[in-house]
């Protein structure tokens, strides 16, 4: 009897292959191929969450370049008194949004959270993040296979990591 649960073995191989290509920085696959794989893969992006540097984390998560856009509206406080709980939200007027991710540039690990937006879910999210110190918060919206970002500096008076 064939099993219906679990990924097909060849699909798993393809995904692993794509991940290692992205990690080696040889991401020369066509953009369409990468986003199709990313959409099919709802696995937890373990590697991206372990990277310290924001640019590396973006590369590991998406493997393509980001352009700033005024259609991405990032709402974060000017000053956060408690870096342990910083309310951050993002909305966008862009169409065909498939994911939204939050990065905190100078946190020990830059990637904070990544949300998948299935068809029918609105591209608008509010959450609360930890911030180690005053730094930039970036929201990246993946829309129609392309990446758009908005960045805002949040001043933190008491960091969210450490006692």
């Amino acid at each position: 009897m064939t099993t219906t649960t679990g990924p097909h073995p060849t699909r798993r191989l393809i995904l692993q292959g794509a991940a290692s290509v992205a990690l080696l920085g040889l991401g020369n696959l066509p953009f369409g191929a990468i986003s199709a794989l990313a959409a099919a893969n709802d696995k937890y992006p373990d590697e991206a969450f372990k990277l310290k540097n924001e640019a590396d984390a973006i590369k590991a998560l998406y493997g393509k370049t980001v352009e700033p856009s005024d259609k991405v509206k990032l709402d974060a406080p000017e000053i956060a008194e408690n870096g342990g709980v910083v309310p951050i939200s993002v909305t966008t007027t862009l169409d065909k949004v498939t994911s939204i991710s939050f990065f905190v540039a100078e946190n020990p690990f830059a990637l904070a959270a990544s949300y998948k937006i299935p068809d029918g879910t609105l591209p608008s999210i509010a959450n609360r993040l930890k911030m180690a110190k005053t730094t930039n918060v970036t929201a990246i919206v993946e829309a129609d296979g392309k990446l758009y970002s908005a960045t805002k500096e949040v001043k933190v008076t008491v960091g969210g990591c450490g006692g």
């Binding site: 937890y44 992006p45 969450f49 342990g84 709980v85 910083v86 905190v104 946190n107 020990p108 690990f109 990637l111 904070a112 959270a113 990544s114 949300y115 998948k116 959450n127 609360r128 993040l129 930890k130 911030m131 969210g160």
Partner: peptide
């Protein structure tokens, strides 16, 4: 939602 340690 995929979360890392930086979520409050």
């Amino acid at each position: 939602a995929d979360w890392g340690t930086a979520v409050s």
